[in-house]
Simulated assay, not measured.
Amino acid sequence: MTSAFPTLAPAAAGLSPTRLQAAIDFAIAHESPWPRSMLYPDGSYVGNVEWNESGPWTQIVGPVAERGGPAGIVLKGGAVVAEWGDTERPDMTFSIAKSYLSALAGLAVGDGLIADLDEPVGKTVDGPHFASPHNAKITWRHLLHQNSEWQGEIFEKSDQVDHNRQIGPGADNSRKGQRRELREPGSFYEYNDVRVNALSYALLRRFRRPLPDVLRERIMDPIGASDGWRWEGYENSFVEIDGRRIQSVPGGGHWGGGLFIGAKDHARFGLLIAREGAWEGRQLIPQGWFGQMLTPSPTLANYGFLWWLNRGPAANPKLPASAFSAMGAGSNVIWIDPEHDLVAVLRWIDKSASEGFCERLVAAVA
């Protein structure tokens, strides 16, 4: 059953009410330009347009839902100090699902299902996906850092679809999908949704249970999340494990599907991560996971285990170096600031404005 968040007046939490309201007004004024239907007038899916998707892998194979309006929630010291929009509406959340996969990987390590992050995935995940000479070198750490260079096709999507992909403001995806020569696993970062789907599949093979069931039982129910969230796979992503037909789920909504969830549930998850996996006296995720999760990748200084870090050349000097976030297209953000004990969730803000909101939020700390 969903439990209520404690609330606290901004001033009592050490925040300037005026500056906090300015941050909220900024978020509302900078709504995502994406159509609320998720389809442009010509019927094109927002993802295909956003990522300049073309070629044989553009088919939408998972559910797509109309989005809500701007929404958000801010926690200070674990209490709600601000809330706007519909924070309970379950909306698509795109690549924030990757950070939930990171938490599940932490559970797998804690359970002994992954004995060593530097062990080849193919040692414990059988089948063709990690059997080739190239893919046999890929470790769990490579998949979590998105530098695996995994090659192949899974659920009828090829890794090539995200070759030469760029993300973030100013991204140039004119060459996206053009085949390039692969590097050695662990040597080259590329944001590649097919490879994240391969990680999700590998985790499914280790848990041998639907990942949404594991997430609900081990994390979401214990933190008091609603029963309205869901994690959808593709129509063709069912696999057989121990005689059961189980759907593998993706790390985003690139081709539909993914995590459909409300801002308030995201805030609970964000607070759990900010508290290093502890919730009301229970250690839900092994505490030792978080130091590894937030260590910069050797191939991208502002990336950990499927979480974005405020580190390296891309760091924003106006924000704490310890801050980190889960981000999804659209844009959807869980931003965590350990220095100020802040957790903020943003739904449907223009991607160029999310850091501006965070800067204003930090400026509201008295």
Rank of each mutant, 00 (worst) to 15 (best):
T2K: 11
S3V: 15
P6H: 04
A9M: 14
P10W: 05
P10S: 12
S16K: 04
I24N: 03
A27G: 06
A29F: 07
P35Q: 07
R36S: 01
M38V: 07
L39V: 08
Y40F: 13
D42G: 00
V49N: 01
W51Y: 14
W57D: 15
P70E: 04
A71W: 02
G72R: 07
I73R: 05
I73L: 15
L75E: 02
T87S: 04
E88D: 15
R89H: 07
T93M: 12
S95M: 12
I96Y: 06
S99M: 10
L101S: 02
A103F: 11
L107M: 03
A108F: 06
G110P: 05
D111N: 10
D118H: 10
P120M: 11
G122A: 01
T124G: 00
D126P: 04
P128R: 14
I138H: 00
H142L: 04
S148Y: 03
I154W: 03
Q160S: 08
Q160I: 15
D162M: 13
D162A: 14
N164W: 06
I167L: 10
P169I: 13
G170D: 05
R183M: 14
N192I: 02
Y201G: 01
R206L: 12
F207T: 07
L211A: 02
V214K: 02
L215W: 13
R216I: 09
M220T: 04
D227C: 08
W231A: 00
Y234F: 15
E235F: 12
N236F: 11
R244K: 15
G251Y: 02
G257T: 06
G262W: 03
H266D: 00
G270S: 07
L271Q: 15
R275L: 05
E276C: 13
G281M: 11
W289E: 01
F290A: 10
M293C: 12
P296H: 05
T299I: 09
L306M: 06
G312C: 11
A314F: 12
N316G: 05
P317C: 09
P320C: 08
S322R: 14
A326G: 13
A329G: 03
V333R: 09
P338T: 12
P338H: 09
E339S: 05
L342P: 01
L346I: 04
S352C: 08
R360H: 00
L361V: 08
A364P: 02
